[in-house]
Nucleic acid binder design. Structure first.
Lengths: 227, 227
DNA sequence: CGCTGTCTTTGCGCCAGCGCAAACAACTAT
DNA sequence: ATAGTTGTTTGCGCTGGCGCAAAGACAGCG
C-alpha cells in the first residue's frame, strides 16, 4: 500500500493514514509464508482479514476434488466480510499466494471500528457490489463463452488486477500454475496447457513454470472479444 | 409483505411498519404488468427498486442471444443497490414476472434514507453478502456439477424461495418456462425439457406449460446430492 | 551432482449435452 | 370454431473439451 492515501477499492478508503494505522493496531497482524491456509470453507467465520502485503486466493471445493478459484485478494482489500453477520460459516477457503502479511479482526472489533467509522460500511457495500458484478460476469461467461475465450479473459482479468508493465509486455507478478488458471477459468489443467502452448507459439504469451508474461496484450483482447 | 414486521432478508428489516410506510411514500410506486422491463443492462443506474408485490427477474445477456438468469427478486427485497455508487450502469436487466408492484427511489433519496436509517446499510451489506454466497455456490456448481443435478438444485432453490406447500407437494407459484429454467441453470431449453419429462414419468414433478409442481421434493433432494 | 517432487505438455479416445428440425399441445383473440 | 401465437417434446447427429496416460522439463535439496 502506498504512503499517500487509500484507493477507492481499499477497505480503508476515506480514512486518514493515521486512522488506518490505529485501526490496524487493534487487530492481530500475521506474517504468513506461501501456501498457508488462513481459513477453511465451512468453519465458523470468526475473523475478517485485511491484506497488507502479498495476496490471498479464495477458493471453493466440490465434493470430490473439483475446485473453483473465486478471487484473488490483493493489498488493501478485505476478505471474509461475512464475519460481521450472525453465526455464519466461511463460504470459501483462503490460502496465501507467496509471502503475505494480513491483519485480522474478530467480529466484536469489526463491529466497533465500523461503528466508529461509518465510511467503512460504505466501503463494504461498494466492495461487495463490485465482487457481485465481477462474479455475475464470470457466471455469464462460464455459461456462454467458449473455453479458449474464457481463458483469455481470465488472463486479462488477472493481468489488470496484478500486472506489472515492462516495455510492452505485462508480467503477472505472482506464481500461478496451469491448474490454478484452470480453476479460475472453470476448465481443466489440460485445456489450459494446450491453449497456452498455442498462444506461446503465436507469441502472445511467454511462460515458464508458474510465471506468466503477457507478451501481446492487445492480441489477447482482440481474441477474447471477436465473434 | 405481512403486516407484522419485516423479515431478516427484507431491505426494511429492523424498521417499524410506520417508518417503512413513510419511506415508501418518498419513492415512486409503480404497478407493472407481466413482462415489463424495469431497467436494461448497461443503462445508467438511476433508481433502486423495492418489490412490494409480485416478482422481478434479473438477467444478463451475452452477445448474441445467450442469456443467464441471475436471480429472482421477491417481495421485500431490493434490486439495483448499485444506484448508491457513483456513476455506474446497471449490470443486469430487470423484468417483471406476473403483475408486480415496486417502489423506486432515485440516488439522492436512497442516500437520504440510508443516512436517516443506518440499519439500511447493514441490511444492504447482509443482502449483498448473501447474494454473493448464492452466486459463488452456483458458480461452483456450474463448473463442477452435471446438468441434471444442476437442474434439480435450481428447482429446489426456486422452490425454497417461492414455493407454496399444498399437501406434500410444493407449487411454484409463478410462471416459469423451460427456457427460463435453462437460463437459470446454465443449460438449454432442450436439456431441461428432456430432464423434466423423465422426472414427470418418475412422478417427481408435474408440469403444465409454465406451471411447475414439485410432487416429490425429497426424491429431488436425494438425487441432487447423490454421488 | 543425481534424486525427488512438482509442474507441464501432448496424443488419443470418448461422451455429455448441444442444437437443429419438425411435430405437437395449450392458450388467446376475433 | 378458426387461426395465430407461444411454449413443449423428442429423434438424431455432431463436437468441444474432458481426462487418462506417459513422457518431459524444471526446481530444490542433501
Amino acid at each position: 500500500m502506498d504512503k499517500a492515501g487509500y484507493n477507492l477499492t481499499d477497505f480503508l478508503h476515506g480514512l486518514s493514514r493515521k486512522q488506518g494505522d490505529e485501526i490496524i493496531k487493534r487487530g492481530t497482524t500475521l506474517d504468513l509464508k506461501a501456501g498457508a491456509v488462513l481459513f477453511h470453507e465451512g468453519d465458523p467465520a470468526r475473523r475478517s482479514f485485511l491484506v497488507l502485503k502479498g495476496r490471498l486466493k479464495l477458493g471453493k471445493t466440490h465434493e470430490l476434488g473439483k475446485e473453483v478459484l473465486i478471487r484473488y485478494i490483493g493489498p488493501g482489500e478485505l476478505a471474509a466480510m461475512i464475519t460481521v453477520l450472525e453465526g455464519r460459516d466461511y463460504p470459501v477457503s483462503a490460502e496465501t499466494v507467496g509471502e503475505t502479511r494480513v491483519v485480522g479482526w474478530d467480529k466484536r472489533t469489526m463491529l466497533e471500528i465500523m461503528a466508529e467509522h461509518p465510511q467503512l460500511s460504505i466501503n463494504m457495500i461498494r466492495n461487495s457490489i463490485d465482487r457481485l458484478e465481477d462474479l455475475q460476469s464470470r457466471y455469464l461467461e462460464l455459461h456462454a463463452e467458449q473455453v479458449e475465450k474464457r481463458i483469455a479473459r481470465s488472463l486479462l482479468r488477472i493481468m489488470k488486477q496484478s500486472g506489472r508493465r515492462s516495455g510492452d509486455e505485462i508480467i503477472i507478478d505472482f506464481p500461478i500454475s496451469r491448474q490454478e488458471l484452470a480453476d479460475y477459468t472453470g476448465t481443466t489443467l489440460y485445456t489450459v496447457s494446450r491453449t497456452m502452448s498455442a498462444w506461446e507459439k503465436k507469441g502472445w504469451v511467454k511462460s515458464k513454470r508458474t510465471r506468466i508474461v503477457i507478451a501481446d496484450p492487445h492480441a489477447l483482447v482482440l481474441f477474447s472479444e471477436k465473434l
